[in-house]
Design a protein around this nucleic acid. Structure first.
Lengths: 152, 152
DNA sequence: GAAGATTGAGTGGTCAATCTTT
DNA sequence: AAAGATTGACCACTCAATCTTC
């Protein structure tokens, strides 16, 4: 039996900071989104992906891959958003197994109303806190961690 | 009306990486915890906090502050764990409004069984990917972001 | 059989209301 | 009134089962 390589004090502190940032940043961004625009973070992510796509339409499969979400989660999410009139489902012409999701005018209005404050919040909590070099370093470290997660 | 300071391409990429790491790391760690020890991340956090406290007991209020959780979330969580026999509630002698949570022998066994693989996973996905200097830098950046969130 | 998608059941977290003690 | 805690209702995510098309 291999001995566990426990975290030393420094590593433990970094890990705790990571967990704290994740919790606080997520809840603060969510709070502002919900309070200001009535959107959840999940709503926002879907609306952004669609609004940045030419034609405002995506295959459900592709949208799911962009978001990194499971099929069932996305299906439930789209159902809720469809009920609110922010997106509509369409048949997929190339492959009858698939489906398409399209942004509605209401959905576009919702994301355009929400985006400025959300971006401002991200800037305020993250990018305003770091110098240009630090942002670049932060991104490099995150990408390194990410590369280990992709193939895990 | 102030113009929105949108994210440039580099910032947008860093932000996307952050969101990706958060999603993938959380789900991977959760998957390993649940699969290996039958504990959720929330269970793990509660058990660690209690097991590191002399006497294995904490005021519910203090436990909540350590975890950064809302009162109701912690109350629900403790109820579930109490049902499983991992913790027990006790009266608070100093202040009759409060309550205490104590780790049981079963709870201790659960955390001791789960910890080695969980720490190994954190090491594998995060600390093994970074040099000593990078870990220190990562921690510094996280703490900077955190300091902006505390008082927000 | 695999891929794409949906559905329903079960679980966890949030919010508002409530209760007790300070 | 404020602090600590609990409860129940509601919403979101996960998992397994199911259905259709490739």
């Amino acid at each position: 039996v291999a001995e566990t390589r426990w975290l030393d004090a420094g590593e433990a502190h970094v890990w705790q900071s990571y967990l704290d940032v994740q919790r606080e940043l997520t809840s603060e961004l969510e709070r502002r989104l919900v309070g200001g625009a009535g959107l959840s973070g999940a709503d926002y992510a879907v609306l952004v992906a669609l609004s940045e796509t030419p034609g405002d339409i995506l295959r459900t499969r592709d949208l799911g891959q962009m978001l990194g979400w499971e099929r069932s989660r996305l299906s439930h999410q789209v159902s809720r958003m469809e009920k609110r009139g922010q997106v509509v489902r369409q048949e997929c012409e190339e492959d009858a197994r698939g489906s398409m999701v399209r942004l509605t005018a209401e959905g576009r209005a919702a994301i355009e109303a929400a985006a400025p404050d959300h971006v401002e919040a991200v800037r305020q909590y993250v990018f305003d806190r770091l110098t240009r070099e630090e942002v670049e370093t932060f991104g490099r470290l995150l990408d390194r961690i990410l590369s280990g997660l992709r193939k895990a």
